[in-house]
């Protein structure tokens, strides 16, 4: 739910992705891995939506489905009004210029056999952004400088760079086609903290300058909080809560969000712990629990929770949560992160 009046750039409705499990000598579908159950959200122009959750919650799959790098099983994705899932491959190519992706792993995200010039420049020529070889090199040099790299690095290979520098090259590659929307898939998770701060600042500057919208996928809540306007929290293939960033941190309404926030290690020593212990592990997406997927670990769960999956209901302006016990949320302690966030927003 984007701010009233803002123009939605990306609208995702009821997105689903199942992976069939095949078994046998002559493979036969025996079940499904439910990577994404039913996910709807939208991203406005020049906005950052943070998508958080633990490993296996489906956040990366959502990011790839949005760009149609993975074909979703169901639902719809509209970009600037166009139905992304209905486009032919030729039409899709045109749209690729407008939507890009930045990856987590600074090592596997660059082809080890391509120079920086090739990595960043190839797509410019593909889309006819610049024509001549010289113009491509010129444009690549400019981009390198813009992402904070020396323009003389243009003929170097990935192995000659540090993790942070590689991440900058990955950003330059995405920017090469002048997109309006970028999926940042754990874009700073693999970096040292001092480098992570550099990249976060770079992403913010680029957003302002180039009027970019981000879908910022991460598991690190303090990073997501830093960069996002709004945050959606995923658990086992579903969004369980969505709110403006300050709102989500100050008053988390879903028990999972509260547990997640209370689990963040916060660099304030010897504070009172407000831990909400979650029992056990995330269940398997092959056989998710009936009803609310979180009920097996939820401290507030009752028998009712097994009956039906709770819908996302609006509990405040732009704040939605999917839980039938929203009224009992205050039985759980307020996470320390929330009290910090409240202080900060005051």
């Amino acid at each position: 739910m984007i701010k009233p009046g803002a123009r939605p750039l990306l609208e995702v409705a009821n997105l689903q992705k199942f992976y069939p499990i095949r078994k046998g000598l002559i493979p036969r579908v025996v079940g499904n891995v439910q990577a994404v159950g039913d996910v709807s959200f939208s991203v406005a122009e020049q906005e950052t939506l943070g998508l958080v959750g633990e490993s296996g919650c489906g956040k990366t799959t959502v990011g790839r489905c949005v760009l149609r790098l993975i074909e979703p099983t169901g639902g719809s994705v509209r970009f600037d009004g166009a139905d992304v899932l209905a486009l032919s491959s030729g039409e899709l190519r045109g749209l690729r210029r407008r939507m890009q992706i930045i990856f987590q792993d600074p090592y596997s995200s660059l082809n080890p056999r391509h120079t920086v010039a090739e990595t960043v420049g190839d797509a410019m020529r593909l889309h006819g952004i610049v024509k001549s070889r010289a113009a491509v090199r010129d444009r690549v040099s400019q981009l390198l400088e813009r992402v904070g790299l020396n323009r003389n690095y243009i003929n170097r290979y990935p192995h000659e760079f540090s993790g942070g520098q590689r991440q900058r090259i990955g950003i330059a590659r995405a920017l090469a086609v002048e997109p309006e929307f970028i999926v940042c898939d754990e874009a700073v998770s693999a970096l040292d903290v001092s480098i992570q701060a550099q990249i976060l600042n770079l992403l913010s500057e680029l957003q302002r300058e180039m009027k970019l919208a981000y879908l910022f996928i991460a598991h690190d809540l303090s990073v997501v909080r830093h960069i996002s306007d709004r945050i959606a929290v995923m658990y086992l293939g579903h969004i369980v809560e969505e709110a403006g960033t300050d709102d989500l941190f100050a008053s988390p309404a879903h028990p999972y969000t509260r547990a997640l926030l209370s689990a963040i290690p916060i660099p304030v020593p010897k504070r009172a712990r407000t831990n909400i212990p979650l029992e056990g592990d995330v269940p398997s997406p092959i056989d998710p629990p009936s009803g609310c997927h979180f009920r097996t670990r939820c401290p507030l769960a009752t028998a009712e929770c097994a009956e039906a999956r709770p819908p996302l209901v609006e509990i405040g302006p732009g704040h939605r949560a999917a839980c039938i016990h929203l009224d009992r949320i205050d039985e759980l302690p307020m996470p320390f992160a929330s009290s910090l966030a409240r202080e900060g927003s005051r």
Binding site: V193, Q196, V223, R225, A341, E343, G344
Partner: peptide
């Protein structure tokens, strides 16, 4: 250089 929970939206000091 840590993104802090108290302050948001400012550039991080790197």
């Amino acid at each position: 250089s840590l993104p802090s929970l108290e302050h948001r939206g400012e550039a991080l000091q790197v």
